[in-house]
Amino acid sequence: MSESPRLHTAGTTLLERARDLRPLIEREAGAAEAQGMLTTPVVDALHEAGLFGVWVPEPLGGAESSPRELLDVFAELSYADPSTGWVVMATTLENGTAGAYLGDDAVERIFTGPRMPLIAGQGTRPGVAVPENGGFRLSGRWSFASGMLHSQYAHSLGAIEGTGEERIFITPIEDVKPLGNWDVLGLRATGSIDYAIEGAFVPASQSHVFDLNEPLRGGAIYRLGLLDQALICHTGWALGVGRRLLDELSRHAGARAGRPGQIAGSDAFHADFARAEAGFRAAAALVRETWDDVERTLDSGRTLDVRQETMVRLALNHITSTLAGVARFVYASGGTSTLRDGLVQRLFRDVHAGTQHITSGPQVLRECGRELAGLAQGQSWVIFTLED
């Protein structure tokens, strides 16, 4: 357990470094999409900037950023390229929570060397873990392992045979059988393949209970637990990609100002753009308000109550659905120029891949509405549902 209940803050250094990398990330985005994973220059630059340590506990040499700081970093990287933002948010979530929750022996094995480890995998649809002396034998098959092609370790959900207890298991990438098949509409550069593990031995110290919310090292952010921390990832991603789409449409319209028949001279477009900006800014404001409240709670040493758990889910759901609407508006407003291969087309495809994620699905929205309407008295959040 952390020695201090207070929330650690890292400052703006990593955000500034992320912003400085934007030209490189933008130049490499096309090549990354073509090869199905980020390019070596981008991965190297992210390491050199310390961005893969943005979530790692400070005692392990990481930045241990606060939720608001993480939102800003992920938004900045996702603005430059949605796939880059996605890889960084996914791997840093998993190396951050590994650093906070794994046993000392595991941390000594994993968090060594000149670079932060990259951990990628899947926390749904558990495999089976059979207890064995000093650990478990893990087997299973998982889908959509965000950033797997960049990782040195896998993060996989497994259910203990005999008890059903769900735990996260961290295994070396050598124990992973990649299944490929990243044949998707968007986010093609994330290397988010399916994979299998067949009877790999996992020492007990390289696993932790899925819903653990008391860290062995690090501060108050890790009291959110794995699921609520994952919501930070997808929220920051949506903030960055939505902002980029609206900025690109503004540039597109401005470049055509003065030409007959262009959207720059359309009153209807002006009004629609204003509505899109207002809607996106309002959704972003809800995100900021919600996570400001979370930070105050964490800094006071408390954990989130049910209403706060509802609001972090609702804020993500709302910014994600708003982003989907922004993407449709920008794509339609761009006319035939967005139909062709290019930045806006790629952003449109990436959005419609990212919005399929389970964290912002319709079930979550329904449950949020039920709690907000006072129809879930005495119930608590268990992943994406409210239960007694």
Rank of each mutant, 00 (worst) to 15 (best):
T163E: 01
T163Y: 01
T163M: 01
E165P: 03
E165R: 10
E166H: 10
E166L: 13
E166N: 14
E166G: 08
I168F: 12
I168K: 03
F169P: 01
I170M: 06
I170G: 03
P172F: 00
P172K: 00
I173W: 00
I173P: 00
I173M: 04
E174W: 04
D175P: 02
V176F: 02
K177M: 10
P178E: 06
G180H: 05
D183Q: 12
D183H: 14
D183M: 13
V184R: 15
V184H: 10
L185Y: 05
L185F: 06
G186N: 04
L187W: 10
L187H: 09
L187M: 13
T190Q: 03
G191M: 08
G191L: 06
G191T: 07
I193M: 11
Y195Q: 12
Y195S: 11
I197T: 00
I197G: 01
E198V: 03
A200N: 01
A200E: 02
F201D: 05
F201T: 06
F201V: 08
F201A: 06
V202G: 02
P203M: 06
A204K: 15
S205E: 15
S207P: 03
S207E: 03
H208W: 15
H208R: 11
H208I: 14
V209S: 05
V209Y: 05
V209Q: 02
F210P: 00
D211P: 03
L212C: 07
L212R: 11
N213E: 14
N213C: 10
E214V: 15
E214W: 10
E214K: 11
P215A: 05
P215R: 07
L216H: 13
L216W: 08
R217Q: 04
R217I: 00
G218Q: 02
A220I: 03
A220S: 07
A220E: 04
A220L: 03
I221E: 14
R223T: 12
R223I: 02
G225N: 01
G225A: 01
L226A: 10
L226I: 14
L227T: 15
L227Y: 12
D228K: 15
L231V: 15
C233K: 11
C233W: 03
H234S: 09
H234R: 15
T235P: 13
T235K: 10
G236H: 01
W237S: 15
W237A: 15
A238V: 05
A238C: 15
L239M: 14
L239D: 04
G240I: 00
V241W: 10
G242V: 08
G242Q: 07
R243V: 03
R243M: 05
R244F: 05
L245S: 08
L245C: 09
L245H: 11
L246C: 09
D247A: 13
E248P: 09
E248D: 13
L249P: 10
S250T: 13
A253G: 10
A253P: 09
G254R: 09
G254N: 12
A255L: 10
A255W: 04
A255R: 11
R256K: 13
A257R: 13
